[in-house]
């Protein structure tokens, strides 16, 4: 494997966004790119990352390899990279280590690190293709604000989507709260628009603790997409350039 990223910031942000949710992960490398799928310890949330080969220049992967990496270790090493450094990942066939180099674009500084790999026996889940009943695309900062504000009151949020819009509601010991958003096109700045596409109304309840965690990815993209269908996991997607993405799935809470 040899994969060169123009900006180390992208990998730094991705790892930062997921390291509190999952710890030991296989980075599955093949000629289409680098993928990661891992569930949190409670088996309630799942991270699915895809960094397409087009996000790297150049990208070469001659044989499929799984790089088992501890994200705390990776975070320690990535801290040594500046956001605008050029980052190159390298691994041999059947590797013991993954090699990372950080090149400063404006000086001759080159740093180089090896991280020991681990054997990770990871459950790999088959995620069915789903036609979601509701898809909401909103500013990622807005979604972060909603989850943060409501998590101060309650452990859970009900998300209801109808043709009127989407409503986030919570009930807690001190009282209750809600935030409603309507479909809205911001003509000056499309990134601030709220798009709702609905085939049937949905109402689902989720744990806010996980949603707050997912929002650590907000720095990766101006926009976030929420996909919901009744009685299936929520999909929260942060799109990256070149069709790469960071997705989170969260199992719902269901009434007794």
């Amino acid at each position: 494997l040899e994969a060169r990223l123009e900006q180390a910031a992208m990998l730094k942000r991705v790892v930062d966004a997921i390291k509190d949710l999952v710890q030991d992960c296989n980075f599955d490398c093949n000629d289409s790119g680098i993928a990661l799928q891992a569930m949190d310890n409670s088996h309630v949330a799942l991270v699915s990352m895809m960094l397409k080969s087009e996000s790297f220049s150049p990208f070469r992967c001659d044989r499929n390899i799984a790089l088992g990496i501890n994200l705390t270790s990776l975070t320690k090493v990535l801290r040594a990279a500046q956001g605008d450094d050029i980052l190159t990942l390298k691994a041999e066939d059947a590797p013991d280590v993954v090699n990372l180099t950080f090149e400063s674009p404006e000086s001759d500084r080159l740093s180089e690190y090896d991280i020991k790999l681990m054997d990770i026996d990871q459950e790999h889940l088959g995620i069915p293709d789903t036609e979601y009943a509701a898809t909401i695309t909103l500013p990622s900062s807005e979604f972060s604000r909603i989850t943060r504000d409501l998590s101060a009151l309650s452990e859970s949020v009900a998300i209801e989507c109808t043709k009127e819009g989407v409503k986030f509601t919570c009930t807690g010991d001190i009282g209750n709260g809600s935030v409603s958003l309507r479909q809205h096109t911001n003509v000056e700045n499309d990134a601030k628009s709220v798009d709702i596409s609905l085939t049937e109304p949905v109402a689902l309840t989720f744990s806010l603790k996980y949603l707050v965690n997912f929002c650590k990815a907000a720095g990766l993209s101006d926009r976030v997409r929420l996909c919901l269908s009744n009685e299936v996991p929520l999909l929260v997607e942060y799109g990256l350039s070149n069709n790469s993405y960071l997705r989170f799935y969260l199992a719902p809470k269901i009434g007794d």
Partner: peptide
């Protein structure tokens, strides 16, 4: 009250 469902209830274990 509601209880938390696990992902394995929805996704296949490969």
């Amino acid at each position: 009250t509601s209880h938390q469902v696990k992902l394995l209830a929805f996704f296949n274990d490969r």
